[in-house]
Structure formats: structure tokens, C-alpha cells
Amino acid sequence: MQLLLYGVLLTFVVFAALAVAFLRDILSAIIAFAGFSFGVAIVYILLRAPDVALTEAAVGAGVTTVLFLLAIVRTVRPGGDRLFERVAWGPAIIATGLVGVLLTTVRSLPTIGDPTSPVATSEITRYYLENAYPQTEVENVVTAILAAYRGFDTLGEAAVVLAAGLAVLVVLRKEVYV
């Protein structure tokens, strides 16, 4: 049952990505990308990562889509009647080569959900799960790590967002707002 659900969702995700790749109209591609992000968010829920799923749905499918729409409003959409783009054979061969090479390495990864995998048995994982609540009194371990143990990392992230916001204003010559 679980496997069937993954099968349906991952097929949807991959086909949505292919739609993004071959749809000629940018607006259609952006809408396909929003659907793709929502599909991935549901996969994250199946992987028991609700925080990541919420962020992906709000930021990946929401904010990113709005940014793309704002960008195409200020630029141009390619004209023409064709629904799909022509296949660019050179890049297609290179991408297929990359997929082929990486697929040969998949077999050496631990199976999905294996409780003896290096990540699941790692000292760090065990430490956070055992000590996060006694040390921080936050039940959600993801929040505890994000805001307490790795607080400086999150501060750096906030600095990146600030820098990006300033960069957008400067690039678009809106320095008056800075």
C-alpha cells in the first residue's frame, strides 16, 4: 500500500518535472513546477518530515511560484503555436549519461527505511533524539536543532535572506528603498 502510494506520487513528480522541461509556454511550465513542488511536499509527509513538507508547500510551491510569476510579468513569454519544445539532443545525451552513471551507484545505498542505515544509527541522531527535550524543553526535535543547537546556522540563513533581498533591490535599481 505504502509502495503503491510512493509509486503514484513519484511518477506524478517525475512527469510534472518532464512537463516543466518540455512545455514551451513559460506560464504553463511555472504552473507545472508548482504542482511538482506540491507533489514533493506530499512525499515529504510520507517520509515523516512534516516540517520540511510545510516549508516546501509554503516556500517552494508558494513563494517561488509568485517570484517566477512576477518575473514573467516584467519580461516576455515566447510566442508561437507549438505546445512543446524541440528536444535538445546534446544536453539530453549528457543528462541521460549523468542519470546512467548515478543509477549504478544506487545499489550501494542502504534500502529506504533500513533501521541499521548509517544516518539512523548515527551518534548525532541518537544524541539529538535523547537530549533535545531535556536540554531545550522543545518537543519538536527539528525545531530544537534549528533554533537552539544550530542557532548560529539559522542566523547565517537569515543573513543570506537579507543579503538576497538587498541584492534584488540593487540589481533592479530600487536602492531608494534600502
Binding site: L47, A49, I145, L146
Partner: peptide, 15 residues
Amino acid sequence: FVSPLPHVLILTAIV
């Protein structure tokens, strides 16, 4: 529990 550490790294990466 599933491991929380990859979730934290990816939350940062998404933003």
C-alpha cells in the same frame, strides 16, 4: 523516530 538532522539541513537549504 526518523532522523531529525536531514530535515533541519533541508529546511535551511529550501530557504
